[in-house]
């Protein structure tokens, strides 16, 4: 659905993105992950035909981003970082305006307008002025604006930024409900969001793609071995470290530690038996997979040239 090759965007001497290539299949929800200034917004602006790259090419639904720009724009819903709203308009008036410039015919307008308003939970505020609404509502209007013309591809730049936890959950539910028929690319630096919403993660830093894979695959690939969280009264980290098959033990506080095992080895049994044999009071022993946070930090720090 979305394909880009070797995108590079230069602002003067500064290269915002360098040689970015990826492809996204139909119906996928892909998370675009990276620290601030990594090039997420630049990439999304190129995909939404806001601006062309310095070099490289891309296509959406088989249409070239630059030669068929108008056709591509009909098929894309784009929520920029700042929702593009006119404070002096009512919610309904604004969405009506967007529907018109997105080229929706008069006949369909009413139905699509109602659908978007309902889908984004704007029914009770539809006749209010946008300028008087809270940030959460504005964000939802921004999303409604991106969905109103039933686009095949939806690009959301940080859709949950600045929202309170309840609103975040709502927006995520909304995004999830869009899955299936639509292809979604969303950027974020909130990591749990990615693991909750996305089939796939693209990690970007300093304008370069570091990884692009399914979330589970990414975390297991980075995983060097099994990791156990151990909590035991009277624990002695030094003695535990001497246990064969254990690579590293990091103590967290007096009673708990993180145990890293050799790759491919099941250590839970051995560790628990050892703890009992030492006479420590076993309180907790859980297997931990690498969190996205850790993968992310590892990728980012590796790309910056030092290890985590």
């Amino acid at each position: 659905m979305i394909q880009v090759q070797e995108l590079t965007k230069r602002y003067g001497d500064f290269e915002a993105i360098q040689g970015v290539s990826f492809s996204i299949g139909k119906g996928e929800i892909v998370g675009f992950l990276g620290p601030n200034g990594a090039g997420k917004t630049t990439t999304m602006r190129i995909l939404s035909c806001f601006m062309p790259p310095t070099s490289g090419s891309g296509s959406i639904a088989g249409l070239d981003l630059f030669r068929n720009s108008l056709e591509v724009r009909k098929r894309i819903g784009y929520l920029p970082e700042h929702p593009p709203l006119y404070p002096e308009m009512t919610v309904r008036g604004y969405l009506f305006f967007v529907a018109t410039i997105k080229g929706i015919s008069k006949r369909e307008q009413k139905a699509k307008l109602s659908k978007a308003i309902e889908q984004c939970g704007l029914v009770e505020v539809q006749d209010r002025l946008i300028g008087r609404l809270s940030k959460g509502y504005r964000q939802r209007i921004g999303i409604a604006q991106a969905l109103i013309h039933d686009p095949e591809v939806v690009i959301l730049d940080e859709p949950t930024i600045g929202l309170d936890p309840a609103q975040i959950i709502e927006i995520r539910r909304l995004i999830k409900s869009l899955a299936g028929e639509r292809t979604i690319l969303l950027s974020t630096h909130i990591l749990p969001e990615v693991s909750m919403l996305c089939n796939r993660v693209i990690v970007i830093n300093r304008g370069k793609i570091l990884a692009s894979d399914a979330y589970e695959k990414l975390t297991s690939e980075m995983d060097r071995g099994q990791r156990l969280h151990l909590k035991a009264r009277g624990l002695d980290v030094e003695r535990l470290r001497s246990l064969p098959g254990i690579v590293d033990v990091q103590s967290e506080d007096a009673d708990s530690c993180l145990v890293e095992a050799e790759q491919g080895k099941e250590m839970r049994e051995a560790v628990s038996r050892y703890v009992i044999s030492q006479g420590w009071g076993l309180l907790e022993l859980t297997s931990k997979s690498l969190t996205l946070e850790e993968v992310y930090l590892r990728l980012i720090s590796e790309s910056e040239g030092y290890s985590a």
């Binding site: 939404s48 724009r73 009909k74």
Partner: peptide
């Protein structure tokens, strides 16, 4: 200033 220009320029109008 309001960045609404992004909406206009990413819409299928010239």
């Amino acid at each position: 200033k309001q960045m609404t220009i992004e909406l206009l320029l990413t819409s299928p109008i010239s």
